[in-house]
Design a protein around this nucleic acid. Structure first.
Ligand SMILES: Nc1nc2c(ncn2[C@H]2C[C@H](O)[C@@H](COP(=O)(O)OP(=O)(O)OP(=O)(O)O)O2)c(=O)[nH]1
Ligand SMILES: [Mg+2]
Ligand SMILES: [Mg+2]
Ligand SMILES: [Zn+2]
Length: 587
DNA sequence: GCCGTTTTCGGCCCGACTGTTTTCAGTCG
């Protein structure tokens, strides 16, 4: 079940597509796209906001017109302007826009001049060169469309950041060590650097002498994982990776930009984005009689900044803006007023408060887990295996839990001085909001992380009640992966987050950002709303085995996207402060 | 269509690569 926000976002996006094909003014199209984007990013359920013109138009990018359309949809379940627009073109036509290199102009041409109304019909017509007769279409263009079509089916959407990051790191390493060329810097940029939960493509930036650009592109497209070359030039090359069978990250696009070191900062800003952040910065430059591009910040012909990002931001009268905040929300105004939050760093994390062992479905012993936490430099580890209603996860019965607590204490005693180990539990929040152990048992635990695992397609009202009940359980200290979503796999619950955060703030308990890249739950927008409500965050890896602690970075990036400082995150507390804080949650 | 510490009307980012273009349009980042 898609949320109202998602449905509305899809309607506005579709209207934008149709308008582009029929040739509506691009700025209007952009306005529709922006509405679609803000609806998608909104942390609050638009249905909950309701048909409230004032509140809707307070949302940046939504004006009177869009608000009216949203209200119409909320009231009637339909949107006339959308239906009218869509009826103007064949239903199969917008799908042509998913073909790489085929935009609105070509779609309109193929339809009006070529009689093509769907991807299927396009494929059929591409079997010979008859379309080359159309104005602006030649044989090379047809050939490139044929090539695009071969991967348009196989590559759908966005991949988890945890899938994209290792691929990006591999390419970065390869480019850093090109034999015989003077590569000065290599970095990943784009949504990956901004820490988004899903990644559309991998964007890589290389700093090297201008003369080396061509050779670096040559080298790049010959790398083993590179399949199709989409475009290739001396400063910009795009490829698609081979479809390694069974690999989820198959067929990813990788974009490389190559610029001289003098432009590296400006290019990194450009390539990190977001697009909307870039546009705002460029507009700001114009307002100051300057010009900003990936080649630098210019006053007339003269480059006045470009070597580093700091330099460019400073020349624009701004503090450095961390990549995770570059989404054109309010970060530019904050950078101007010097009020950007001092975001936490991964080094600020000193505790893991949600991890599993072989006692339930983990793949390592208590001791192995503890040693890994020590290696991370943590002062505290909470062992939190599953509770009894999770038989698939080998959840612990009360009897097994009693023994497990003893086992944890034993390891804890033997590792005293190296790390403090808490005997906790990840207690299932049952469908009705009760917890999977009685309170008498919960009280014996050092830490209770309560999280939902089943009944994840409950309707929003039920989900809200369920989680509220868990929040108000006096034994609970952290609500873990609150929605239970799995990225690209399962939507999870859609509770009214605002109500949950208000209750959690009242109780003084924390909401987890589960750092596992399948979960990232709370997601960035929810974590931001939690902070606004005054709720503390926990960042936990939910580690089940050795590699899992490495996903911590994704949780940290998500928290940074929410604007979190180390004072907002309980894993950043000192050992003693954490002890006190946990005690304060258990009245 | 949206928006306003110079504006309620008139702007709305800027550049690389490709193909069919004899001077630039389309698409994409
Ligand atoms: N100035 C400007 N920069 C753009 C534009 N489109 C993209 N960029 C910049 C900002 C983007 O973050 C960066 C990389 O483009 P991508 O299409 O890969 O977007 P991004 O990585 O942000 O998201 P993704 O996860 O790949 O969909 O290039 C644009 O129209 N104008
Ligand atoms: Mg990208
Ligand atoms: Mg890209
Ligand atoms: Zn867990």
């Amino acid at each position: 079940m898609a949320t109202t926000n998602a449905q509305l976002a899809a309607l506005f996006a579709r209207m934008a597509d149709v308008m582009q094909i029929i040739g509506v003014d691009g700025f209007r199209v952009n306005a529709y796209r922006k509405v679609s984007r803000v609806l998608e990013d909104l942390s609050e359920d638009i249905a909950k906001i309701g048909p409230d013109m004032k509140r809707l138009t307070e949302i940046d990018g939504i004006g009177k017109g869009s608000a009216e359309r949203i209200i119409e949809f909320l009231k009637t379940g339909r949107m006339k302007d959308h239906d009218d627009l869509v009826s103007q073109i064949p239903p199969g036509l917008p799908a042509l826009l998913d073909i790489s290199g085929l935009g609105p102009k070509t779609a309109a041409l193929l339809w009006k001049e070529g009689g093509i109304e769907s991807v299927e019909q396009l494929k059929e017509k591409l079997k010979d060169d008859s379309l080359a007769a159309l104005p602006g279409l030649g044989e090379k263009k047809l050939e490139s469309l044929r090539k695009s079509l071969t991967f348009t089916q196989s590559t759908g959407g966005r991949v988890r950041i945890g899938q994209a990051m290792p691929v990006a790191r591999w390419f970065v390493e390869k480019l850093r060590t090109i034999p015989g060329h003077k590569v000065k810097e290599v970095a990943f940029a784009g949504s990956l650097r901004r820490g988004r939960e899903t990644i559309g493509d991998i964007d890589l930036l290389v700093a090297a002498p201008e003369a080396d650009g061509g050779a670096i592109s040559d080298y790049f497209v010959k790398l083993e994982p590179v399949g199709q070359v989409i475009v290739k030039g001396p400063t910009k090359t795009s490829v698609r990776t081979k479809s390694a069978s069974g690999d989820e990250a198959e067929g990813m696009q990788v974009d490389v930009r190559i610029v001289p070191l003098e432009c590296y900062g400006a290019a990194l800003m450009y390539f990190t984005g977001s697009k909307e952040h870039n546009v705002s910065l460029r507009q700001r430059a114009i307002d100051r009689g300057l010009k900003l591009s990936e080649w630098g910040l210019f006053k007339g012909e003269q480059r006045i900044a470009g070597r580093t990002e700091e330099e460019v931001y400073r020349a624009l009268g701004l503090d450095f803006i961390p990549p995770e905040l570059r989404e054109d929300r309010d970060e530019i105004a904050q950078a101007e007023r010097h009020t950007l939050p001092d975001l936490l760093n991964i080094e600020d994390i000193h505790a893991e408060l949600h991890a599993h062992t072989t006692a339930s479905d983990g793949r390592w012993s208590i001791r192995e887990l503890a040693e890994a936490a020590v290696a991370r430099g943590f002062h505290t580890l909470a062992v939190t295996d599953h509770s009894k209603s999770q038989p698939i996860a080998n959840g612990l019965t009360v009897e097994r839990l009693e023994q497990h607590i003893k086992d944890v204490h034993e390891v804890a005693a033997s590792m005293k001085g190296k790390i403090r180990i808490l005997a906790g539990s990840e207690v299932d929040i049952l469908a009705d909001g009760t917890l999977d152990y009685p309170n008498s048992v919960l009280r014996e635990l050092d830490l209770v992380v309560a999280s939902p695992h089943a009944a994840l397609s409950q309707d929003p009202e039920k989900a809200t009640k369920r989680l509220l009940r868990a929040i108000n359980n006096p034994s609970v200290t952290i609500i873990g992966h609150a929605t239970g979503r799995l990225i690209n796999r399962r939507e999870g619950l859609h509770p009214e987050m605002k109500a949950l955060f208000a209750a959690a703030a009242e109780r003084g308990i924390a909401f987890e950002i589960n750092a596992n890249s399948y979960r990232l739950d709370l997601r960035d927008a929810h974590a931001r709303a939690a902070l606004e409500a005054g709720v503390k965050l926990a960042i936990n890896t939910d580690a089940h085995g050795p590699p899992d602690l490495n996903e911590l970075i994704y949780g940290v990036m998500t928290a940074r996207r929410a604007g979190a400082t180390k004072h907002n995150v309980i894993n950043c507390l000192s050992r003693d402060a954490l002890t006190k804080w946990i005690a304060s949650t258990r009245a």
